[in-house]
Simulated scan of single mutants.
Amino acid sequence: MNDAQRQPLPPFTQETAAEKVQLAENGWNSRDPSKVALAYTVDSQWRNRAEFVNGREAIVAFLTRKWQRELDYRLIKELWAFSGDRIAVRFAYEWHDDSGNWFRSFGNENWEFNDGGLMHKRYACINDLPICVDDRRFHWPLGRRPDDHPGLSALDF
């Protein structure tokens, strides 16, 4: 795939915005920092919680640290809104730390894309909720969420 272009391209429609969200969810569920970083411009700007991340190399380093800490990570994203070259997403993911404490993290992201469909800006607000292992709702083998697994709305999140 050409680094200068990543389908679908803006301006987004309901269908292409939802496709972009699903592709992002699939990528993040791979937990492969180098693969995920290719969806962003080389000079991408992030705010993730209170951390500012700039550029692909920093994204790879950030995601490597994240997935070393957030074990058995499983993510669901859902389209919230879109317009032109921007998409708003809500998401939840479940993970545990190295002591076996489980969490469900909820958040919202605002994305801005360049003309080639690469994300140039990402702003994420995230809150972590400690949960009991019995309260987990994201049950699928690590990797891409199966098509028949409920999304956030179906799970009432």
Rank of each mutant, 00 (worst) to 15 (best):
Q5D: 00
Q5H: 07
Q7K: 13
Q7L: 11
T13C: 13
T16K: 05
A18M: 10
K20W: 14
L23G: 01
N26H: 11
G27A: 15
W28V: 07
S30F: 08
R31K: 11
S34R: 15
S34V: 10
K35G: 13
V36S: 04
A37P: 14
A39K: 07
T41Q: 10
D43N: 07
D43P: 05
Q45H: 11
A50N: 15
V53W: 01
N54C: 11
G55D: 09
V60L: 05
V60Q: 06
A61P: 05
T64K: 03
T64G: 06
K66D: 01
K66Q: 06
Q68H: 08
Q68M: 09
R69P: 00
L71R: 08
D72W: 03
L75P: 02
E78S: 14
S83H: 12
S83L: 13
G84V: 09
R86F: 05
I87D: 05
A88L: 07
V89H: 02
V89S: 03
A92G: 07
Y93L: 00
E94H: 04
H96I: 02
H96D: 02
D97I: 02
G107H: 05
N110A: 03
N110E: 05
E112S: 05
N114F: 05
G116I: 00
G116N: 10
L118V: 14
M119G: 11
M119D: 10
M119I: 14
K121W: 02
R122S: 11
R122N: 06
L129K: 02
P130F: 03
D135L: 02
W140Y: 08
R144Y: 04
R144W: 10
R144P: 02
P146Y: 03
H149T: 12
H149V: 15
G151K: 03
A154L: 11
D156M: 06
D156I: 10
D156S: 12
